[in-house]
Computed example of a mutant assay.
Amino acid sequence: MSEACAGDELYFDANASEPLRPEAHQAALEGLALTGNPSSVHSQGRQARQALDKARRQVAELFQRPEDACIFTSGATEANAAAIYGFRELARLEGRSDHVLVGATEHQAVRQAAPDADLVPVGPDGRHDLAALENLLVGENGSPPALLCVMAANNETGVVSDLPAIAALCVRCQVPLHVDAAQAAGRMKLPLAALENASLALSGHKAGGLAGAGALLLPAAMASSPFPPFMKGGGQEQGRRGGTPPLVAIMAMAAALEAASQQDWQKVRTLRQTMAKAMRRVGAIIQGPAQGGEGTMLPNTLSVTVPGLSAQAQLMALDLAGICVSSGSACSSGKVGSSPVLAAMGLGPAARQTLRISLPWNVQPKQVERFMEVWHAMVARHQSQQAPRCQP
């Protein structure tokens, strides 16, 4: 299957979309051979239903949920929106506040689904301020919010949230927790025991599957309960998400998540750490927790600031050298601008001098070596231009 480079190009933008995994490719081919609609009762429909049920079992088992807790969607964006809509509707039906809290560094899929939400601040390392969170969870006049939304790991910086501590606060304050696990699923071990009362959003293509499939995993206690549908339609997904399920993409997602969960990510983490050390030696700043070890950072992600060198100039120089990286979320219409995530971390002007490098699952050491050669040359040119010159 595809390497991390196509021809002479290097693809280091895996957080936007991972290269297709062989297991997902094979699952997609099997899905393409199926004709029926999973909702049809004839033989072709039953074969499609069996494939859909198998994929649901795979995903549910990976995240220790009952099969009925898994609602297939078109992606993590829809899964996040469905969770926010559903929990708010449940709160309204029960006469509770439908107010929502979201982390200040959340993906726009969450921010736009709850534009009136209060933000949970983060520190300079990108991790949530737990004291501020606890105050927000208590709520004004003792009225707790309907939902808290946080990312398992940030798509721009790779910073991993302290999910056990956050989940414990939610249990104590009796506030439902929703976790956007699109970037973390398969790349790290999620604290599933601590998250047994939380809902999770998953993405297929972020794990090496096809775009077009995702999942919302409800807490086990809600597996068989009605959940207000964000997408209304023909009653698919037990009436909790309308529309014919994208079977081929779902099968690929299940295979990709399983393969990603079985991968040894230490090799990728070691390459990331080697890059970070080399970058720091020439004055670059790595955003996130100082140590950047397992449990605090994704194994594949670097958020790198080169003081004085704009992200746009870096992107152009690397692109001309055949290297694909980004300056932030790939869901921002291709714009190169200041990142709300980095702004929430207090970076100020440095936010416009920061790149995201996200290594793909199949990255090779020789590809990292080539990237570092190009990156070092770019930084050296910039630093030589900034050096003071003697006056004649």
Rank of each mutant, 00 (worst) to 15 (best):
Q291K: 15
A387I: 01
A215S: 13
G209S: 11
A215T: 05
A249W: 03
A249Q: 15
M231S: 06
L347I: 01
G126S: 09
L90E: 13
L101G: 05
A51S: 10
L190W: 10
R46K: 15
Q391G: 03
L318C: 12
A321G: 03
G234I: 04
L148A: 11
A33P: 04
R88N: 07
E373S: 07
R370W: 05
C390Q: 11
A60G: 12
Q386S: 01
D162L: 11
L148T: 06
P145R: 13
F87K: 05
A14Y: 04
A249V: 02
M253I: 05
A83K: 06
M1N: 06
T274E: 15
E258Y: 05
P19M: 10
L347C: 08
E258I: 01
P228V: 02
G126I: 08
S329P: 12
Q383N: 04
M275G: 10
Q26Y: 04
G233V: 04
Q383E: 01
A221P: 00
P145L: 13
A207G: 08
G334K: 07
A211W: 10
V379G: 01
G204Q: 08
V306Q: 00
A377Y: 03
A223M: 12
A113E: 13
I357P: 00
W361T: 02
N300M: 03
A14G: 13
E89T: 14
D13P: 00
M188K: 10
V100R: 15
H42P: 00
L355Y: 09
H128P: 00
D8C: 04
D319K: 10
G322E: 11
R46C: 02
R389L: 09
V374Q: 14
